Structure formats: structure tokens, C-alpha cells
Simulated assay, not measured.
Amino acid sequence: MCRWLAYTGEPLQPSTLILDPVHSVVAMSLNSPLGAEPVNGDGFGFAWYPEGAAHGAAPSRFRSIEPAWHDENLREISRAVRSPLFFTHVRAAGGPPIQQTNCHPFRYENWLFMHNGVISQFAQTKRDLALAVDPSLYPHIRGTTDSEVLFHLALTMGLADDPIKAVGDAIRMIESVGHAAGVKFPMQGTIAASDGETVWAFRYSSQGQSRTLFHSADIPTLREMYPDVERLATFGDHAQVVVSEPLNDLPGAFLEVPESTVAVLDRTGYHHEPFLDAAA
């Protein structure tokens, strides 16, 4: 459906990951071997927390309906800024129209959110799910995607207080409403959320056959494994990437996130936690 990348660590130019790797996110927009669709050309988004921004500050964002591979502004901006945490997403529209408000990442205050996947048969459940969004948050839904409704459901469920529980509660609501409407497998996807300090990366589907998701091994270990790879010197010791597909073919450089798991990444490193149970 889409492809995405999140970075956290020492500040760097986002182009280092968005443009430069052999299998960068922009390259994935043209050719995504592990994706449900090989081409993701229905718009993109790039959002970043500026270097030196105060804790809790809102991120900046640039979105466009142009294909990522064709947009010169993405190249200019990603080379001009530096950021310790950023998201980027390339879209393959699965039904909702191609318009800027439907491009990820979505933003609310200091939170960023993006999704690769689908709420199955969303047209049958959209009304009930949208009406479950807190009335104070509902006006902030600007587009027509299932992903944006999912984000605002998670905000309603307490994303700012307990991100893992809130995303889990939002998905359980989606499954409950979907099952009541006769949808066998209501939820599919990988999700990234951040408050500017931590990245939570979820892999889950009702069917137990989720979209692919990987994150990088820690940089000091990779330097020991590959002392001759000069590119690793670009990254600080705390640099971490979570991405829909590996950015290179170095064995051991990227670790797959298991099904029904959330990967939590911050300056202390990463760890995995069980997330929901597809059989529940």
C-alpha cells in the first residue's frame, strides 16, 4: 500500500536516508520489491523535528501529491535541514483520492503518525469509527483516509499518555466495529508514531500477515561487523532507522520486526514488546 521510514538519533541531513541509499525511500517509490504494490507514486510526505527544537515543539512538515522521485523540493529541503528525528512516507493510494490532505505523515501538536496498510472495507465502518473520535479532535481530520481516522482514534484513546495501549485500543475498536459489519480481517498494517523523543513502530494485522517492517542494528555493532564500510561513519552511535524495507543488502544490518510486535526506539537503543494478539 505504501512505504515509510523513521529516523531517530544524532542530527543529520534527512537526505542521507531519504535519497542517498541504494534502496532509499525515494527508490522504493519507484520499485518496492517487498511491498504490496511495486510503485508508490501517489504523493509523499516528509516531517521533521528541527535540530535544537524545544521538547514538545511541533514538527515541520512538507507534503505533495507529486511522485517522490519527481519532486525537486523534497531534494532541496531534505538536504537543507538537519534533524534528530524525522518521518517520510511514499503513498500508493488504495481508494481515497490523491490529495495533499491524504498524504502522510499526519500531525497533531508534537505528534507524528504514519501507516502502511488498510482498514478493510473502510466505507462500511467509517461512520462508526469517525464518530468515536473525541469531538475536540474531530475537526482536525482534514482528509478522507482510514489512516487519519486511526490516528485520531489513537489520540482519543490516550496516545500522549500511553502510546502502546492507545494504538492497541484503537485497533481493537476497529476490529470490533469491523467484525460487527461482517469484515473478517479488519486491520492490516505497520504504524509509526512519535512525540519527538521516542519512535514507536507497530507491526500488526488481524490476519497475522502484516506488511514488512525492519529496523537497523545498533551502529557500534555494525561498525565492528563492517569496518571497511565508510558510510557508517556518517551516523552517530545512537542512530536508528525503522523502515518498510532494508535500505541496503548488508547481512545483519536490518532486523525484521516480528508479527504482533512494537519496536520502541529512543536514545537508549531499541527493544521489542508483544503487541496485541491476532488470535484474540
Rank of each mutant, 00 (worst) to 15 (best):
P135H: 07
P251L: 11
A6N: 00
L137A: 01
S29L: 01
M114P: 05
G208E: 03
V199A: 08
I18F: 06
I171A: 05
A54Q: 11
F87C: 11
A130F: 08
D228I: 02
V241Q: 12
E245H: 12
L155I: 06
Y49T: 01
G45S: 03
A47D: 08
G45A: 04
T125F: 07
P59V: 04
S260T: 02
L153C: 06
P163S: 03
S147A: 09
R142Y: 02
N248I: 03
S15R: 09
V81G: 10
G196H: 07
D169M: 12
L159M: 11
E197Q: 13
A192N: 12
Q99D: 12
L159P: 02
E10W: 05
F151W: 00
D128E: 13
H70C: 06
T234Q: 13
V149N: 01
T212A: 11
P274E: 04
V81N: 07
C2M: 05
I98W: 13
L276W: 01
A181D: 05
L247K: 05
P186W: 09
I174C: 15
F46C: 02
F235A: 11
G95F: 14
S64C: 09
T190H: 06
R75D: 10
R61L: 14
G196T: 07
P33C: 00
E259D: 15
A280Y: 00
F113G: 14
S206D: 09
S194G: 05
F254V: 06
R203T: 02
P11N: 06
P258M: 12
R127G: 02
C2W: 03
W4C: 08
A170I: 14
F106C: 11
V90G: 06
Y226I: 13
P220Y: 04
R203K: 15
M157W: 00
Y270M: 08
T190L: 07
F214K: 04
H140I: 00
I219M: 13
M225H: 14
A47G: 14
R172T: 15
V39N: 02
D161V: 05
W111I: 12
H70A: 15
M187C: 10
Y204R: 04
D237F: 10
F46P: 02
M173Y: 06
S260I: 01
V149S: 00
T144F: 00
I191L: 14
F275E: 01
L159D: 09
